[in-house]
Every structure is written in structure tokens, then in C-alpha cells.
Amino acid sequence: MSGWFERFRPYVMVAPAIIVFVLFFIYPIGYMIYLSFHEWDFISPEKQFVGLDNFSGLSEHPEFLKSLENTFVFTFFSVGITTVLALLLALWINRPTRFYGFVQGAVFSPHIISLVSIAMLWMWLMDPQYGLLNWGLELFGLPQSEWLASPETALYSIILVAIWKSIGFNTLIIIAGLQSIPPHLYEAAALDQSSRFTSFAKITFPMISPTLFFLIIMNLIGSFQVFETIDIMTQGGPLQSTNTLVYYIYEYGFRFFQLGYASSAGVILLIVLSILTVLYFFLMSRRVHYQ
């Protein structure tokens, strides 16, 4: 009767979503790759094909190289420190009482706050003259810091904010991983009179290592996209010390209208993210295999 419609039903059902994806995600990627081989300033009618010139230009462009370096430094420290601290914190506060629940909530709270507010709040905390952080340092008899105002410390200050914001989320994910470990494993270990360290090394760590792997990959993917804190707190400065890949793309595309340059930087980001994504799926398929 409605056999014709029956056959098309699935397509009708997926079409709206697929159209959005193609229009706003898939096609733009293609367009960006196309632009990366051209020179264009957004105003002139002509897009001039320049082959790989944009890429070779980038490779000699100190500002770009600096932004790449900063992105890697940011990623390395923020992801590394966040993961280690989150693991320790998770092992510590994974208890089912109300008080521990409150601690978990407090640790998690920055995650639901807009990065805008977090960035502005920390700018104030890190104010070199009147900021609370310098007051705290002085209280403990430590030397004060210039925080965001100095090229030496600005990037690390941004890293500190990133860690503060994401540690709670990471902690709770690890806690979820810890709670999914079957208790009987620990009971067996207790019967064997194994020490706390042994049961961590032999049971806990292997059991949550898949969770950790995925957190690390997700954090890597996330930290390559860092933008908000930079834009609000330092705008890439001082002296390019906090310029990152996405901020570079933003500036070259939106301030200097060098769309070819910006696009080829985008292609480089695409490549990095693709590698991480492939790694992610590779690990995912391995994990599925284990179960």
C-alpha cells in the first residue's frame, strides 16, 4: 500500500541531520582544503591558485611556528598534568559519602561555567598588582609572579587555568571507570593479602587504563583547539608567547584577511586531529576486542 514510502522512510528520517552535517561540516572542510591552495583576501573576486606556496610560506613563518610550538607546549603540559592529577584525585575522593560527593561537585563545578567567565575571573586573580594569587604567594613567603603580563609565564598561566577547569571532569570520568571495576576482583586480592600498591598496580590500573587512554586522546583533541582563554586573557601576547594554532587561524583569517594562509594552517590542524581520531578509533576497536 505505502510500499514506496516504506522504502524511503529511513532516508527521510536521516536526511535533516545529514544535510546539516554535509552543509556545515563536510563541505566546509573541503572548501578549506581548496582555499589552502589559493591566495585570497576575501575582497578580490579572484582566488589565485598558488599550489603548495601557502604551506611552504607557513613553514618559514616565525609567527606560525611559534604558535605551533605554543600549542604543543600547552597540550603537553595541560594534558599531562591534568591526567595525572585527575587520577590521583579520583583515587582519593572516590567514596560514596555525602561529603565526598560535595567535594566531587566542587571539583567539577568549573566545567559547567562558561570559559568566558573563567578567563575573566582568572585574569583578575592573576593581576600582577592587586591579584589574589600574588597575595597568596606573598603569604607563603614566595616571590610574586607577573603571570599573564610576562612572556615567560603567560603560557603557563593559561595552562594553569586549563588544568583548573578540566581536572574535575577528568576526575569524575575516572571515578566512573573505577566504579565499574567489579568488586570481586578486590575481594580476591584481599584474600591474597596483597598490599594496596599491588592491588592498584595489578587490578585498578589495568582496569581503568582504557578509560585513561580515551581521556588522554579526548584531552589532546580538545587542547589543540584552545582559543577562548587566549582570546580573552592575552590575545596571543605578550610577544606571541601565547599565540596558538587556532588563534593564529582566527587572526590571519579575520584580522589580516589572508584566507589562504589561515586555511592552510587549518589543514595542518585537520591533519593533527585526524591522526588523533584514527588513534582513537584504533584504541576503541582494540577495547571492543578485549570485552
Partner: peptide, 29 residues
């Protein structure tokens, strides 16, 4: 249905594309 896996794969690829990657071309669009 025909191409169901391909369309799902496309969805999964989208899942991995951050807005920071596509804002420039979408802006132009």
C-alpha cells in the same frame, strides 16, 4: 537501507570535527 553504513560513517566523522576547524569556510559561506 542502502548506504546506511556510509551515512553513519559520515555522522561519526562529523563527530570529530570541531567548530574551530570549520569556522572560516562556514563564515565565508
Amino acid at each position: 537501507f542502502f548506504a546506511d553504513r556510509a551515512l553513519f560513517a559520515l555522522t561519526m566523522i562529523t563527530l570529530m570535527i570541531p567548530t574551530q576547524l570549520i569556522f572560516l569556510p562556514v563564515y565565508l559561506q
